[in-house]
Computed example of a mutant assay.
Amino acid sequence: MSEQNKSPNAVWQEVSVTRANREKLHGHRSLLVWFTGLSGSGKSTLVHATEQALHARGRRTYALDGDNVRHGLCADLGFSDNDRTENIRRIGEVANLFVDSGAIVLAAFISPFRADRQKARNLVDPGDFIEVFCDCSLEICEQRDVKGLYKKARRGEIKDFTGISSPYEAPIDPEVSLNTGELSVAECVERIMAVVEARTQLTGD
């Protein structure tokens, strides 16, 4: 939504309980961990495995998954470039609210465009965004194809499908890059957890 479309009557309401208050209550800092990659690259699998690992350590978490979000918040959007951009804009805003709540947010979205991922990064404070690139070849993603989406895209039954008829812009300098075609889920989670745990340590009172 552009600035000119915002209502002049909408005024930001300051709160009495701050993010810092919530983080202190939870015992850890909050942040946004953004998983990006082609369909079938392992984003959702890693999000849920990482969330389980964090939950086992007593961390407050929330996972946002691309398919789930399109059932509700973004049910009105298609897969054109503009709709993809709007989809990520909405997710970024929602994720930012969860970060403010003191949670570690794990977001699994193809999010094919670098500019859109950068906008999501810009919504949170510097250092509060971890980009996890699920780097998996198109060939392996197609072999996995548990939903049969690549086959439909190859037959022309799905338009604007990332990796087939729509581009994917790989991250240039992600905080975490994982070859999910070779690494096990456990190995990937271990690498993610090392970065997340370092970023979520509280310092001082």
Rank of each mutant, 00 (worst) to 15 (best):
G37Q: 03
S39K: 01
S39L: 03
S41P: 03
S41I: 01
K43P: 12
K43C: 07
T45H: 09
V47G: 14
H48S: 15
A49K: 02
T50Q: 13
E51D: 12
Q52F: 03
A53H: 03
H55N: 13
H55F: 06
R59V: 10
R59A: 15
R60Q: 13
R60N: 12
R60L: 14
T61I: 07
Y62Q: 13
A63G: 11
D65W: 01
G66Q: 03
G66K: 05
D67Y: 01
N68F: 01
R70V: 01
H71V: 01
H71I: 00
G72P: 01
L73H: 08
L73T: 07
C74Y: 08
A75Q: 14
D76S: 13
L77K: 08
G78N: 11
G78V: 00
F79P: 02
F79C: 11
D81F: 13
D83V: 07
D83G: 11
R84M: 09
R84T: 04
R84L: 10
T85E: 15
T85C: 07
E86H: 04
E86G: 05
E86P: 00
N87H: 10
R90V: 00
R90D: 02
I91S: 08
I91R: 12
E93A: 15
E93H: 09
V94C: 12
N96M: 12
V99Y: 10
D100I: 03
A103E: 05
A103P: 01
A103I: 01
L106Y: 03
A107R: 02
A107V: 04
A107N: 12
A107S: 09
A108W: 00
A108S: 11
I110G: 06
I110N: 10
F113H: 02
R114E: 12
A115I: 11
Q118S: 06
Q118F: 07
K119C: 10
K119E: 15
K119N: 12
R121T: 09
R121Y: 07
R121K: 15
R121S: 06
R121Q: 10
N122E: 14
L123I: 05
L123H: 03
V124H: 05
D125T: 04
F129I: 08
F129W: 08
E131G: 04
E131Y: 00
D135E: 01
S137C: 03
E142M: 12
E142L: 07
Q143P: 00
R144F: 12
R144W: 12
R144Y: 10
K147S: 11
L149K: 10
R154P: 04
R154N: 05
R154T: 02
R155T: 14
G156H: 06
E157V: 11
E157W: 03
E157P: 00
E157C: 13
I158L: 15
I158N: 13
T162Q: 09
S165I: 07
S166V: 04
Y168H: 06
A170N: 09
A170G: 03
A170M: 15
A170P: 00
P171I: 15
I172A: 15
P174Q: 15
E175Y: 07
L178C: 09
N179T: 02
N179Q: 10
N179K: 11
E182R: 11
E182I: 08
S184W: 02
S184I: 01
S184A: 11
V185W: 07
V185Q: 12
